[in-house]
């Protein structure tokens, strides 16, 4: 009798557990559109660099201060555009910040997100932009588990490959994760 109860408990528990796991594995879906994680190895995601400019590819959020347009390149960094003459805006710098989505500014300091950390950049001189502080783990690590705001298939995260810095559209072959 006792063994039956244990057995039943086990069966029930299995059901409970299985309902929590992202399903999809039980049937093969073939090739589907979804998202796949883009990884940075080790601490590479913390590396911030400034280049003269890069093309705007996937536009994110936008911020304006003192005739300068700051535009987020989704998960990749921030474009700085001189808009002193609105009929002739000039791209002047691009700050590579892996996992960056947001921008805000106070005085000479720009705040942005670097994966799960908050970064403070000194932008008083666009030719000498520096990281002055890093406040770690301000965000819950949702994107390290699954793509936020996404409904559909995605390639399961393999943490051994590094830190997820972005999710990209991709054709997935029998993905085992979906939300």
């Amino acid at each position: 009798m006792k063994r039956t109860i244990i057995f039943f408990s086990f069966i029930c528990l299995s059901f409970l557990l299985s309902s929590c796991v992202d399903d999809a594995a039980n049937e093969s879906v073939g090739e589907v559109q979804g998202l796949k994680p883009l990884y940075a190895a080790g601490d590479d995601w913390k590396t911030v660099t400034v280049v003269s400019s890069r093309e705007i590819v996937q536009l994110g959020k936008i911020y304006y201060k003192d005739n300068i347009i700051y535009v987020n390149e989704l998960n990749r960094g921030i474009h700085i555009i001189d808009n002193t003459i609105p009929t002739n805006p000039q791209t002047i710098k691009f700050i590579n910040v892996p996992g960056s989505k947001d921008i805000s500014i106070k005085g000479n300091f720009l705040y942005t997100d670097n994966v799960s950390d908050l970064l403070v950049l000194d932008i008083s001189d666009f030719n000498n932009i520096t990281v002055v502080n890093r406040i770690p783990n301000i965000y819950p690590n949702i994107e390290q588990l699954y793509p936020e705001f996404h409904t559909g298939y995605f390639e399961c995260v393999d943490a051994s490959k590094g830190t997820v810095i972005a999710w990209e559209s991709a054709t997935l072959n029998n993905p085992e994760c979906r939300r």
């Binding site: 936008i62 911020y63 201060k65 947001d102 921008i103 805000s104 500014i105």
Partner: peptide
Amino acid sequence: SSETGATDTGVAGSYARFITVGDYLYIVDN
């Protein structure tokens, strides 16, 4: 020039999840 005159914060688009107000920075996550 900036709509709020000589302030030290800028203007964000409506999708912002970061916002600076006076001496404070507000961040919303999920």
